[in-house]
Write a protein that binds this DNA or RNA. Structure first.
Lengths: 377, 377
DNA sequence: CTGTTAGCGCCTTCAC
DNA sequence: GTGAAGGCGCTAACAG
């Protein structure tokens, strides 16, 4: 049916093995034969049969990138960065594919199964994780099994898996052939432990709240993300830590001034309305992220409130549109592209794992026009 | 190493063939054996070896979705919609993967090769195509070959391939094994022609310009997308058609009032500045899309111009943030989610092809606050 | 440096 | 309804 290796071999007057060697390039072949083979490949328009080669080699060139919401630039930027590291020029023949979990733990697991079935070379899990004991255990188990099968695991934008969830790994004693060509790549035996590129959400949220406090705000509403998500929790913790440090009394109100919702625009809109209802005197609103912040702004405007004269608003992430919002949004910048690129390199083993297997990416306060001192009334 | 079909078979006390039949589900198996097999699968945590099954069955469950810019919600929404049609509940075991071409024709081809190599079940190409004769020919050739190998091809958001580029298809005489299980699915022999879900960009642009003309605008700037892209051309054509219909004299200025740039925010910013330089008296600016429009708004504001009092601005696509911009953006809505979902169903063969293989999606004018009558000075 | 020989794990006719 | 057997296309030792 389709052109096969054998066809090419026949055309070039060599054996199939030689063609295979030329194509994979990791084996010495005479220049003359090589070009003869290449020409035959051209003429026949031969395309390797991925499944067959994956079966024989017991590895594939698929790299999975799991995202919570592909329509959200937060993930798009990271996914794009991961993929940029898999360019043919850089990493040849890798197929980085992004899978949209929609934030559902079940689908996360489903995609991992699909990827496991494909014997993926690596998997990058991006964005916040769901903090549910059962799910975490299932996730850890699946990742461990994939790692054991040689799949590299990288977490990007979520914390490392809890220690106890990954326990049980590495119980197979490593065979003793150590020191083999050390430095070029790590010893291949024993599954590589998951590597994490974490974001400093806590620190960022803390600095953002400190910024608001410094401006003089005391009644600060918080439209948080979905409960049970690591990112939601960390940002909230940073926020409250800043509050507590400044004046423990502020902390008692915090609960009342917090609402939860999805990471989308309408949650921001609804959340802001709810906060206004609970505390008409608030002077600032922090949002779970920039998209939510836009929704908050819309709600405030619809209520006849000016930003930042009447109420200050801040987001998180510093997505491209944030600087262009009217007014420009104060937010916390996460270097998503850099983080994604690094995750990509880590996934390919082109960059060595950070000490402890965890790299934390710094976040930076971007103070812009949407925050100002509160009205002096 | 890993658990295989044979292991499961042994555990369940049946043959490998039986396990295979249970798992693929398309063959009668006694209820008792079936559950025995299923239990063995559970206990052993068996996961099918994708490459092996793809090799044996000569088809895989990979579906590729090519996008020009994964960080752009325009594509994210479509990709998400395509993927939503591949949910395990709906289409079982399909792995929809999105590949980011970055708008580069070479990478588009590269990804198609990768997908071809994986014997992808289907490929969905989204967004504007590059109008370059050589590339179009190469693309058509590759798609034809993939189609011949049984891969379903769907175009979403771009026009059908030119007739002459797809010619040459179907010259291989069909093998005579017809009528096998007819009625369950279409005759599998003979490649399915590419199916297109096109957007009515021309009509949308036309209505948008008519809206501006009706408001009284005559000096209308246009920040267009990249040259050589189908979408860019179609929107521009719609715009100019409206101009010509209203007053042929307007057409002569059109060229001078058009600048080209990428589909991003900074192109909008720079483009608006350039237009202002060329025609300080313009009263409205149309943008290639909503993202570009935001850049235009930023530039105008920075020049001290109010929107829409001094200059009206309009975008295209109606991305979620457009309604929330300040002022809310007049734009043309494209039902991206619906289009993507349909493309997904088409890719799976769960929906039959539209007559002629081309479905055109309607676009709708969304007149909002960013457009108003021009100043009467 | 190149050819030969075995499988990789699964699906799919064929018999029973 | 179930088992046995061959082969999908390629890679990875081995020889030479």
């Amino acid at each position: 049916m389709a052109v096969t290796l054998a066809d090419v071999a026949a055309r070039a007057g060599v054996s199939a093995a030689t063609v295979s060697r030329v194509l994979s390039g990791n084996y010495p072949v005479a220049g003359a034969t090589r070009s003869r083979v290449l020409r035959a490949v051209e003429e026949l328009e031969y395309v390797v049969n991925g499944p067959a080669s994956a079966l024989a080699a017991a590895t594939s060139d698929l790299v999975g990138v799991l995202v919570n919401d592909i329509a959200d630039p937060f993930f798009g930027i990271m996914a794009s960065a991961v993929q940029s590291e898999m360019e043919p020029e850089k990493a040849g023949r890798k197929l980085a594919v992004v899978c949209n979990t929609g934030g559902s733990p079940e689908r996360e697991l489903t995609y991992l199964t699909l990827l496991q079935r494909q014997r993926a070379a690596a998997v990058v899990l991006t964005g916040s994780a769901v903090e549910d004991e059962k799910h975490t255990a299932a996730l850890a188990a699946r990742l461990r099994r994939m790692a054991e099968a040689g799949t590299r695991i990288v977490l990007c934008g979520r914390p490392p898996l809890p220690e106890d969830a990954v326990a049980g790994r590495g119980d197979a004693p490593r065979s003793g052939k150590a020191g083999r060509d050390a430095g070029k790549d790590e010893t291949e035996d024993g599954p590589a432990a998951p590597i994490t590129v974490a974001f400093d959400n806590r620190g960022g949220a803390r600095r953002l709240t400190e910024h608001l406090l410094a401006l003089g705000h005391r009644r600060i509403g918080y439209v948080a993300g979905p409960v049970e998500r690591t990112t939601t929790r960390h940002r909230l913790e940073g926020h409250r830590a800043a509050l507590a440090d400044h004046d423990p009394a502020l902390l008692s109100d915090a609960e009342h001034l917090t609402v939860h919702g999805a990471y989308d625009r309408s949650s921001g809109y609804d959340g802001a309305l709810e906060l206004l209802r609970r505390a008409p005197d608030l002077t600032a609103v922090l949002a779970a992220n920039d998209t939510v912040a836009l929704g908050v702004c819309a709600a405030l405007r619809d209520q006849g409130l000016r930003i930042p004269e009447d109420v200050s608003v801040a987001g998180f992430d510093d997505l491209p549109f944030s600087a262009d919002a009217a007014p420009a949004l104060t937010t916390v910048r996460i270097p998503l592209h850099e983080a994604g690129a690094r995750a990509g390199r880590l996934a390919l083993g082109r960059e060595s794992a950070p000490p402890g297997g965890v790299a934390t990416v710094r976040t930076e306060l971007m103070a812009r026009a949407s925050t100002a001192p509160p009205r002096a009334d």
